[in-house]
């Protein structure tokens, strides 16, 4: 069982709620995914649509609500958003995102570390979104991150796990759960992360913009489960040389020597 911040999760698939065509589709996809953790963002109220409210579409009894600090370009902005998130959600869960460059949306390691340290001190359960840097992962867990969230590839790119080598090191070293976040574009990418030993994956775009987001949510749930089961079962090692899977003795060629 996966435990983060004292909370136990049965599902290892976390879901982002962005870019769904409607809150009805989002609700059905959440249901189909079996997720117990959903992320949300904070934005200014659209004064043209003041009634618009995502909270009414989400069941907080079934899912932990994980507000993100998307839009923050430095630690100061992220900390301000974190406090707003806590006031709005009434809980201390936080996905810390500090992305100064809107073109790449890559996380700023220095500001992320600074903000994690301060927010942990302020009582937040901090899950920092980070580049797949093993040393940074250690630094983040040292200052009290509840989990680390290394990226597979940049946000929304559907490029999959381009950082497999570093993520493997992070997983091997981590004392906190490792949640592979961002860039996961297909169920096979999620399965790969889980086979490598990731504790969970966070998926948004690949599900929300799929032709059928509800069916895709189900496909991701199955992939995450398959990948996890494979990791626990223990995968065979890789070899550059062929290793016969059928017995090499008693073949026709041995028994009928003239064939040799």
């Amino acid at each position: 069982m996966l435990t983060i911040g004292g909370h136990t999760f049965n599902s290892r698939l976390f879901l982002g709620t962005g870019k769904f065509s409607s809150s009805t589709v989002m609700k059905q996809a959440i249901e189909a995914s079996g997720t117990e953790m959903v992320t949300v963002a904070l934005r200014r109220v659209d004064l043209e649509n003041p009634q618009d409210d995502i909270m009414s579409a989400l069941d907080r009894d079934k899912c932990v609500f994980l507000p993100n600090t998307s839009g923050a370009r430095n630690a100061e902005e992220a900390i301000r958003l974190a406090h707003l998130a806590r006031a709005a959600s009434g809980s201390s869960w936080l996905k810390l995102e500090v992305t100064p460059d809107p073109r790449t949306l890559l996380p700023d390691p220095v500001e992320t570390l600074k903000a994690t340290e301060e927010l942990v001190r302020a009582g937040f359960i901090v899950l920092p979104y980070m580049n797949a840097d093993p040393i940074l992962a250690l630094r983040l867990q040292d200052v009290g991150a509840a989990a680390v969230m290394p990226l597979g590839s940049p946000i929304g790119t559907n490029q999959g796990i381009l950082t497999a080598f570093q993520i493997e090191i992070i997983i091997n070293q981590a004392r906190v759960p490792v949640v592979v976040d961002a860039g996961i574009g297909a169920p096979s990418h999620a399965a790969l992360a889980m086979e490598m030993g990731a504790d969970a994956v966070l998926v948004n775009t690949a599900i929300s913009v799929a032709g059928d987001p509800v069916a895709m949510a189900r496909a991701f749930a199955q992939a995450v489960e398959a990948g996890r089961t494979a990791f626990v079962a223990g995968m065979g090692s890789r070899s550059k040389q062929a290793q016969a899977s059928s017995p090499l003795t008693g073949t026709l060629a041995t028994d009928l020597g003239f064939l040799a």
């Binding site: 992320t39 904070l42 934005r43 993100n68 948004n204």
Partner: peptide
């Protein structure tokens, strides 16, 4: 805090932000 909404008034040039949750990853 919500319990202060009814008693909080404004000064000229105050900066007010009205924030809520929206869908996001």
């Amino acid at each position: 805090q919500p319990d202060c909404y009814a008693t909080t008034s404004f000064q000229d040039n105050d900066q007010m932000e009205l924030i809520r949750f929206v869908g996001g990853g």
